[in-house]
Measured scan of single mutants.
Amino acid sequence: MFYPNSPQTSPQLTQIPYGQQYAMMQRQIQQPYHPFATTEPQARLYPYHYQGPIQQEQGGFITQQSTAASPQYVQMRVTPVDQSIMSGYPNQTANGSSSSSFNYNIHPQQQQQQQQQQQQLRHHAMPVGSVPLQDDRYRKQLIVNYLAPDVTSTDLHELFSRFGELDGARIIYDKQTNMSKGYGFVYFCHAEDAKEAVERMSGYEFHGKWLKVGYSTNPLNIVPSNSSPYVHAGSRGAAG
């Protein structure tokens, strides 16, 4: 039997160049792979992502010199942007860049009308829970959420009447099932009393439920100042 490094198959040491006398086997001759043993700084910083320098080929596509990437890492192929796409944008300079302001050559009167329309939209648009300043009635009506099913309009009136005089209180019921929808409205005579009720009743436990109280901004629920107070009856038909 002959071994790869046996004296019968191995040459004389004098015939082997210096430095390879003890590297006779194939696994010894093959050098191990060192990912950080390279002179390129990109490979030292990113050993798993770097795959060699990027070269520009004919046709405008950018390719990489090395083989496919590892399945664990996804390499994105980048193509140059066609400058003709950006030619339609206004205020574009000769080098292809555009300024931040756009001039669509709008007539001054049209621009003024658009600004007025935007101001009107901001004036009428009102986020949930906010209180408008032009109508004091919005500051007097509250919406009470997360009410228990057994709470009546009379219970709601008695709960909030300790903060001040009320114009009314009612629970909203479903017309088909005649069941409470879980929320109601309270109408105060003074805005200061309503503000105190919002601050003190939010998070209050009532009939096993934690109440959420806020201003009601729905104009359909506003009680006119010259109208008669609501009837605080315990029956659902009268309260709904």
Rank of each mutant, 00 (worst) to 15 (best):
V213K: 10
Q15G: 04
Q119L: 05
G214N: 12
Q110A: 13
N91P: 10
P17L: 14
N218P: 03
E199D: 03
Q21I: 12
Y3G: 04
Q114D: 03
A233I: 01
P47T: 13
Q176F: 04
P127T: 07
Y89N: 03
M24V: 07
A125R: 14
Y33P: 14
Y18G: 01
S235W: 00
G59T: 08
D167P: 09
K181G: 08
Y48P: 04
E196R: 06
L45W: 05
A238E: 04
F185I: 08
P90C: 13
H207D: 00
L156P: 13
F163M: 13
G208D: 03
Q113L: 11
I62T: 01
G96D: 05
T9E: 01
P90G: 12
P11N: 13
Q110F: 00
Y183T: 07
S216V: 03
V144A: 02
N178E: 13
Y48W: 13
G234W: 12
G129V: 10
S216A: 05
Q92A: 04
L142P: 03
A125F: 13
Q113F: 07
Q15L: 15
T14N: 01
K181I: 02
V213R: 07
I222N: 07
Y187W: 00
R44G: 10
Y173A: 10
D155A: 08
L166Y: 06
A43M: 12
S70I: 02
S235I: 03
P17D: 10
D155K: 00
Q115C: 11
Y3P: 03
S161N: 00
F188M: 03
S202T: 11
P4D: 13
Y187Q: 05
M201D: 06
L156H: 15
R137A: 13
D174G: 04
N95P: 12
Q141P: 06
D82Q: 12
S130A: 05
T38L: 04
Q116D: 01
M25I: 11
S235E: 03
A239T: 08
T152K: 02
L133S: 08
T9Y: 14
F160A: 01
M179S: 05
G96I: 10
P35K: 08
I171R: 07
Q112P: 08
G59D: 00
F163L: 03
Y204P: 04
D155H: 02
E40D: 05
K140Q: 00
A233V: 10
A194C: 08
Q8T: 06
Q109C: 13
A43W: 15
Q8V: 04
Q75C: 07
G60I: 15
S130E: 13
I29P: 09
V144P: 11
Y50K: 06
D82K: 13
A68E: 12
I29E: 13
P224H: 10
S10F: 05
G240R: 12
Q119K: 01
P35C: 06
R77I: 13
I54Q: 00
Q114P: 09
E165R: 10
S66W: 15
T38W: 15
D155P: 03
K181V: 04
Q83G: 10
N226E: 08
A148S: 11
K140C: 00
A68Y: 14
H190Q: 13
P11S: 04
P90Y: 07
N95K: 08
A69S: 08
V144D: 12
E165H: 07
Q141K: 07
Y173R: 08
Q112R: 08
I106P: 12
N226W: 04
L220W: 06
E196P: 08
G129K: 12
A238D: 06
E192Q: 15
R170D: 00
R27Q: 13
K140R: 11
S216Y: 04
N91L: 07
Y187K: 05
Q64N: 06
E196T: 03
G52E: 11
T79P: 01
H207F: 09
L220K: 08
A191N: 06
P149S: 04
L211I: 06
V198L: 07
G60R: 04
P4N: 14
P47L: 14
Q30Y: 12
P4Y: 14
I172L: 04
E40Q: 07
M201I: 07
Q21F: 09
Q114W: 05
Q30S: 03
Y187S: 01
L13T: 06
Y3Q: 02
I172Y: 03
P224I: 01
Q31G: 05
I106W: 09
V231M: 00
V74K: 11
I85W: 05
P108K: 07
D150M: 03
E40V: 11
M201H: 14
P41G: 10
L133W: 03
S228F: 12
S227G: 07
D150C: 01
Y3F: 12
E158H: 15
A238Y: 14
I222V: 10
Y89S: 05
Q12V: 04
